[in-house]
């Protein structure tokens, strides 16, 4: 089974092409995306995107490329991540009763991170 890598992209939103560029960075290096979650963090346009991607020999190249895209502030590789499936926690029980489809939210429990900004390690 291919292991999964999880990244968090902190970026600045101007329009939705930001998300296209984030996704395309993986696509261009032949990396599949298992899941993606993003949201506008504040009114100033700060945006965060979490992605679970299949591990791939191009993974670091994609992270480095992503780290130097205009509007991307930094990219964090989240290591030792536990993904918590909220279905198991009973939090969405009420919602699940009324919906036929499955609704899954992954909450990364982060062990350590490696961060890149414009090609440089930043913590």
């Amino acid at each position: 089974m291919t292991s999964e890598r999880v990244v968090r992209v902190v970026c600045h939103y101007r329009d939705a092409s930001l998300l296209e560029r984030v996704i395309a960075t993986f696509r261009k290096l032949l990396i599949d995306i298992n899941w993606i979650y993003g949201r506008l963090v504040n009114d100033a346009g700060l945006y965060e995107v979490y992605l679970g991607v299949k591990d791939h020999h191009n993974f670091l190249a994609a992270v480095l490329d992503l780290s130097k895209i205009v509007n991307v502030i930094r990219v964090e590789i989240l290591n030792n991540v536990d993904l918590i499936d909220l279905r198991d926690k009973g939090i969405f029980n009420d919602l699940m009763h009324t919906r036929s489809e499955t609704f899954i939210v992954y909450i990364p429990q982060i062990g350590s991170t490696k961060c890149y900004s414009w090609g440089e390690e930043c913590g």
């Binding site: 970026c11 600045h12 101007r14 346009g45 130097k68 205009v70 509007n71 991307v72 502030i73 900004s117 414009w118 090609g119 440089e120």
Partner: peptide, 11 residues
């Protein structure tokens, strides 16, 4: 003024 852009720095 560009949010999320910086030229590479000399290191």
């Amino acid at each position: 003024l560009i949010d999320g852009y910086k030229p590479f720095k000399d290191n």
